[in-house]
């Protein structure tokens, strides 16, 4: 092992005696660490902005959030599944009003099924159950189903707007837009 010599500095700088040969002095350390960190930040920032850009697509293939649902006379008392497949919405006709329920369970967001024999909505994921008026009564769902904005257009057709929702626990079901009186 005696033939290994200590590395010799090839610079002529005799002032840097405090640095052992082969080590970096403070100035070049700062310089290189700035370069290194700069490159690191640039790469992370570049990728980060690309990922960020990815979250805002140029085109969104989303179904329309507002749809027409025929005239109130087309609905008999009970739950209509006409628009469940396409829009995920139940139109419910009660004696004196029509309202639209969003078919998204308030527990974890699965799509409940309507069980006509039991007059209730039942979620297949954790067993939450809702009455046909949307009130939660069994299973873990903490809130009632959300009602959607429902209005009559000038030509007498029902218009459902999925972007505006009415929460029972906040007392919003008495809102004029949450139902159509019949």
């Amino acid at each position: 092992m005696a033939d290994i010599k200590p590395p010799v500095s090839n610079t002529l700088d005799t002032n840097s005696t405090s640095n052992p040969p082969g080590d970096m002095d403070r100035r070049s350390f700062i310089k290189w660490s700035l370069v290194g960190w700069g490159a690191f930040v640039a790469v992370i920032g570049g990728y980060g902005s690309m990922v960020g850009r990815f979250l805002f697509p140029n085109v969104l293939f989303e179904p329309v959030q507002t749809f027409r649902a025929g005239t109130p006379y087309e609905y008999e008392i009970g739950v209509s599944e006409r628009f469940k497949e396409k829009y995920g919405v139940w139109i419910v006709r009660e004696k004196e009003k029509i309202f639209a329920l969003l078919a998204v369970c308030t527990h974890l967001g699965c799509t409940p099924n309507y069980l006509p024999a039991d007059h209730k909505f039942k979620c297949p994921c954790h067993g939450s159950g809702f009455y046909t008026n949307g009130i939660n009564f069994e299973g873990p769902a903490p809130r009632s189903l959300e009602r959607l904005k429902i209005t009559l257009a000038d030509d007498g057709e029902i218009v459902v707007d999925k972007t505006i929702r009415f929460h029972y626990e906040k007392g919003e079901w008495s809102n004029q837009d949450s139902f159509i009186p019949v």
Binding site: K84, E85, K86, Y87, G88, A103, C110, T111, P112, N113, C123, P124, C125
Partner: peptide, 9 residues
């Protein structure tokens, strides 16, 4: 299909 959850899921 977001509007159909298999039963049971």
């Amino acid at each position: 299909n977001p509007t159909v959850s298999p039963n049971p899921s």
